[in-house]
Amino acid sequence: MDRMSAQKRRESVIRAAIAEFARTGYHGTSTAAIAKRVGVTQPYLFRLFPDKKAIFVAALMRSMDDTRLAFERADDGMEGGGQALRAMTGAYAHLMSTCPETLLMQMQGYAAVAAAEAQGDDLIGEVVRAGWMRIWETVHLSLGADADETASFFACGMLGNTLTAIGLPASAGR
């Protein structure tokens, strides 16, 4: 039987953490739940990550990267404008329907910023702001650097996120 490498196990932990944190948030998620989902012990989990916050940050970064990459792949070969907008809208709708935990994880990250910063911890806020700027830039450049169109795209996306978070289909916002 092949043993899973530490890097693959780490990736499994990040994916499990996204699912758990997306569902119950930072404070509502235990490292025991993450370890159980992956099939490892908590001590092994802490050999891969120093603490729960590091797991949360890794999950948050991955969910934001997954979103950015979905937009990047959708825009591959497009020449901006309406064609790029339709491709990225389709990619986002696909991501919301097939991986809602990716988007819900980001929403949990947004919620965690204020609580962490109120306690003097800027790390989560820095990760969220940097991830958001990378996503914004990817979409903004794909849409031909039109700020109003980019803002409108994200406004519709956030409505979709909110509807997904409360258990309604994104199409309910149309």
Rank of each mutant, 00 (worst) to 15 (best):
G39M: 03
M78P: 10
F21N: 00
A74T: 02
V13G: 00
A33S: 14
R62M: 07
A91Q: 04
D65Y: 12
A93Q: 14
V13F: 02
T29E: 05
K52P: 05
Y92E: 02
D51T: 13
T31N: 03
G28M: 09
T24C: 14
V57R: 09
A87K: 05
G82Q: 05
A87W: 05
Y26E: 00
E11H: 12
G25A: 04
A93H: 15
A54E: 11
A32S: 13
I55G: 04
T31Y: 01
A87D: 02
Y44A: 09
V40K: 04
S12Y: 06
G39N: 03
G77I: 12
G81K: 10
V38P: 02
F71S: 13
M64I: 05
A93Y: 14
F56M: 06
L45E: 14
V13R: 00
D65E: 15
F71K: 04
R86W: 10
E72D: 12
Q42F: 03
L48E: 11
A91I: 04
F49N: 09
R86E: 11
T67A: 09
A74S: 02
R9Y: 10
A87L: 06
F46M: 14
G28H: 09
F21G: 00
L45P: 08
L85M: 07
A93S: 14
Y92C: 02
Y26P: 00
G82N: 03
E72M: 07
H27T: 05
R47Q: 12
D66T: 02
A58S: 14
S30C: 06
D76Q: 09
A93N: 14
M78G: 13
D65V: 11
R62S: 08
V40E: 15
L45T: 09
K36C: 01
K8H: 10
A22Y: 03
R23K: 10
K52F: 06
D75L: 10
K8L: 10
L69K: 12
I18R: 02
A35D: 04
R23E: 08
A19N: 08
R62P: 05
V57E: 11
V13C: 02
G39A: 04
L60P: 01
I14A: 07
G80I: 13
A84V: 07
E79K: 12
A32H: 11
Q83F: 10
L60A: 04
K52S: 06
E79D: 10
V13S: 00
I34Y: 00
G28N: 10
I14L: 11
T24I: 11
A19Q: 09
A35K: 03
F21V: 01
L60N: 01
L85R: 09
R37I: 13
E79T: 12
S12A: 14
E11V: 08
E20N: 08
A54W: 09
I34P: 00
M88Q: 06
A93I: 15
